[in-house]
Amino acid sequence: MHDVDQPLRYRLITGPDDAEFCARVSGLLERGYRLHGSPALTFDGERVIAAQALVLGPGD
């Protein structure tokens, strides 16, 4: 069980590829997360959906 006061070490952010998605990723970067791998994109028949993994902590 995850303690809600403790940040997750790994996050996978998904959603429509729009300004809100970018703001969510940017907000996590400002809180100490770093990108983990490349983003993934798919098309759901109406819009582009993005996914980006982020990890908390220092880089390699």
Rank of each mutant, 00 (worst) to 15 (best):
M1Y: 10
M1I: 12
H2L: 15
H2K: 12
H2I: 08
H2D: 10
D3V: 05
D3L: 09
D3A: 12
V4D: 10
V4E: 15
D5C: 09
D5K: 15
D5F: 14
Q6D: 11
Q6I: 13
Q6S: 11
P7E: 08
P7D: 02
P7T: 05
P7F: 01
L8S: 13
R9H: 11
R9L: 09
Y10D: 10
Y10S: 08
Y10A: 10
Y10Q: 10
Y10P: 00
R11C: 08
R11P: 01
R11V: 11
L12R: 12
L12S: 05
L12I: 09
L12W: 04
L12K: 05
I13M: 01
I13S: 01
I13W: 00
T14N: 10
G15H: 01
P16I: 11
P16V: 09
D17T: 08
D17P: 02
D18V: 05
D18Q: 06
A19G: 00
A19R: 09
A19V: 08
A19N: 02
E20T: 08
F21V: 07
F21M: 02
F21H: 01
F21N: 06
C22E: 14
A23C: 12
A23G: 14
R24L: 06
R24M: 03
V25W: 02
S26I: 01
G27A: 05
G27Q: 04
G27W: 00
L28T: 02
L28H: 11
L28N: 02
L29T: 05
E30V: 01
E30P: 01
E30C: 12
E30K: 15
R31D: 10
R31K: 15
G32L: 03
Y33R: 00
R34Y: 07
R34G: 14
R34N: 08
H36P: 03
H36N: 14
H36T: 03
H36R: 10
H36D: 15
G37M: 07
G37W: 14
S38Y: 15
S38M: 13
S38A: 15
S38R: 14
S38F: 13
P39I: 04
P39H: 04
P39G: 06
A40H: 11
A40W: 08
A40C: 12
L41H: 12
L41A: 07
L41P: 02
T42I: 11
T42E: 02
F43T: 03
F43C: 04
F43D: 11
F43Y: 08
F43Q: 05
F43M: 03
F43W: 14
D44A: 10
D44Y: 13
G45C: 02
G45P: 00
G45S: 00
E46Y: 07
R47A: 13
R47W: 04
R47G: 04
R47V: 05
R47K: 11
V48R: 11
V48E: 14
V48D: 11
V48M: 13
I49R: 09
I49D: 01
I49F: 01
A50P: 00
A51K: 03
A51L: 04
Q52E: 03
Q52Y: 01
A53P: 02
A53C: 05
A53H: 10
A53F: 08
L54K: 03
L54S: 03
L54V: 12
L54Y: 02
L54T: 02
V55Y: 06
V55D: 03
V55E: 08
L56M: 04
L56Q: 05
L56E: 03
G57A: 11
G57T: 10
P58N: 08
P58E: 14
G59Y: 06
G59I: 09
D60W: 09
D60M: 13
